[in-house]
Structure formats: C-alpha cells, structure tokens
C-alpha cells in the first residue's frame, strides 16, 4: 500500500472543471452557430474558424514565449473567446481583420491581465469593439441572410433591422423571422430561438444562473415598453422588437454572463443586469450607434469590482425586519 494521503476536508469533489464549463458554453452556442452557418454559409464558416484558431494560437504563443507558464489552451476558454468573437462579426469581414480582432481579444483583453479569470473586461467584446471603432464600415455592412450562401467577402449587404432606429429605411422582417433568425446581422446574434435553446442548456447544466440574462431582458422590455407608451411617435418600436433584434440575446445570454467579468453575488448580478439593460436602451435610442449591447456590457464589466465590493450576498440569519 502506498503512503496514505492526508488533507483537510472535504475529501470528495464535485468533479466540476474549468474545461467542463467551457465545453458546456460551447455546446450551448452550437444551435446559434448552426443557424449562422445556415443563413450566412461559407462566410460564417471561414470567419468562425479563423477567429477560433487565431485566438487559440495567440494564447498558446503568449503562454509559451511571453509568460513561459504551463499551456492551458486545452481548457477551451480561448476557443470560446474565439467563437464569441466570430459570433459578433459580420460574415463578410476580411480575414486579416479577424486576426487583428483575435490578437486584441486574447493579447489585450485577456492575457495582459494575467490570463483566465483575471481579465476585467470580456475579451471577445474588447476585440469586437476594437474592430468596430477601427473599421466601422466593414463591421456594420452585414450580408443579407441567404440560405447556404457560398459567397464570402462579396456577399450582398444590407442594414440590420436595428438601423431603423436611426431613421434609415429598412425593410423590417416579420416578428417570426426575427425570432427564428431570418435577418441581417452578425453571425451568432440573429436567431433568438437558437440562443434561448442555449440559455436553457446553460441553466439545466447549472453553468450559469438565471439572474443576469433574465434581468437584462426584463429591463430592456420594461424600459422600451415605458418609452413606447409615453411617446409612441418618437419611440415607435415595440419592446418585442428590441428584444429580438441586434445582439441583445447573444449579449445577455453569453457575453454578459462571462464568469470572470460578471459579479459574484446574485444581488450584484441583478444590479449588473439592470445596468446593462438600461445602458443598452439608452445607446440604442439616444446614441449614435444603432447597437449598444457590447458597450453596455463593457461599461458594466468595469463596474463589476465595485458591485462585488459593495453588494454582499444575503447572509444566513440576516435580520428580517
């Protein structure tokens, strides 16, 4: 018999690992990915493969040659960042831009803070916002959804329904099409149905709790609903439109719930979710950009340490008055 092992309790473990969680999120992203592949065809495939591979490669290179620490690309977090970055890109974006985005995501958004768990901002969104500000045209000319499209950079482009908010004339698809994903947009954001399936999977697997996505969605719904009731002329879009268009579903379910950048307590998660909802609506309706989810999430990411510091969990036996 070997030497007995002595350790403090507990002596059993749930068997949960980082890579299990990351694989779970990747699985939850699959329905939305399939919808993206269906409507954007070859472009979506090229963009997503480039993004994932370059993110993993940059993480490997940085860990190997800059940090000289054990390589952890197997945990799936870099692949997840890559896929989320791809989900936020139009399917006709040139490859070199994707590689720059991946470098910013991994290099600046994640590794410069010390790697997994230490980044204050969602790395995929850092990459996306960097690209959006640097290459506004390429980032906002989305191809039309054509089933099994074989064109890549030369696909026919169209504005997204959200551009209607900024006074552009756009053909607004039917609500059912919005729900299923038959509209222009970034690769992963179009189908609310597929994203909600992903949410259900995440909740069942207990990878995330309901607090962040649901509080964001409810806030957006209520806020736009109130604006719509107060002045239907000026704020003419119904709340349902706001929920189903743009990156709101993708952002609230997969980006805002990123472990490292969201608050630790359920109360804090609710504050964070409401904050994201309000900022999103403010940017969408009053701001220059038609879409504000990424900015809203990044802004609230920056507030997360403050929320963690001041919003404490409900303690056991806290006086109920």
């Amino acid at each position: 018999m070997n030497k007995l092992i002595i350790s403090p309790s507990p002596h059993v473990h749930s068997g949960d690992t980082i890579s299990k969680n990351m694989r779970g999120v990747l699985t939850a992203l699959m329905p939305a990915y399939l919808v993206g592949l269906y409507f954007f065809g070859l472009g979506a495939l090229i963009v997503s493969l480039t993004a994932v591979l370059s993110c993993v490669l940059f993480e490997y290179l940085i860990q190997r040659y800059l940090f000289k620490e054990p390589i952890t690309i197997n945990d799936g977090s870099a692949a997840l960042t890559g896929l989320l970055l791809a989900f936020n890109l139009p399917s006709n974006i040139p490859i070199w831009m994707i590689i720059i985005g991946a470098l910013v995501s991994i290099g600046i958004g994640k590794m410069s803070f010390g790697g997994l768990g230490n980044n204050p901002l969602n790395p995929a969104l850092v990459g996306r916002v960097f690209l959006l500000i640097s290459f506004p045209v390429a980032m906002t000319s989305w191809p039309r959804p054509i089933p099994l499209n074989m064109n890549y950079t030369d696909a026919v482009t169209a504005a997204t329904p959200l551009a209607a908010l900024k006074g552009q004339f756009v053909e607004i698809p039917k609500t059912m099409d919005l729900f299923l994903g038959n509209m222009g947009g970034s690769i992963g954001e179009i189908s609310a149905l597929a994203l909600l399936l992903g949410l259900a999977f995440l909740l069942i697997k207990k990878i995330i709790t309901w607090h962040i996505p649901i509080s964001i969605l409810i806030t957006v719904f209520v806020f736009t609903g109130i604006l719509n009731l107060v002045n239907p002329e000026l704020f003419f879009k119904p709340p349902m439109f706001h929920l189903l268009t743009g990156g709101l579903m993708l952002g609230s379910i997969f980006m805002a719930t990123d472990y490292a950048t969201s608050p630790m307590t359920t109360r804090g998660m609710l504050v964070y979710g409401v904050g994201i909802g309000i900022i999103t609506v403010v940017i969408r309706i009053f701001g220059v950009y038609p879409e504000g989810v990424s900015f809203a999430i990044l802004i609230m990411n920056a507030f997360t340490p403050l929320i963690n510091n001041y919003i404490k969990p409900k303690r056991f036996g806290e006086a109920k008055k």
């Binding site: 070997n2 030497k3 007995l4 092992i5 002595i6 350790s7 403090p8």
Partner: peptide, 9 residues
C-alpha cells in the same frame, strides 16, 4: 521516514 503524504495547501 515519511509515513503519510500531505495533500492540502
């Protein structure tokens, strides 16, 4: 001689 192996922090 070691008789057991510590596996904590």
């Amino acid at each position: 001689p070691r008789s057991n192996q510590y596996d904590g922090v």
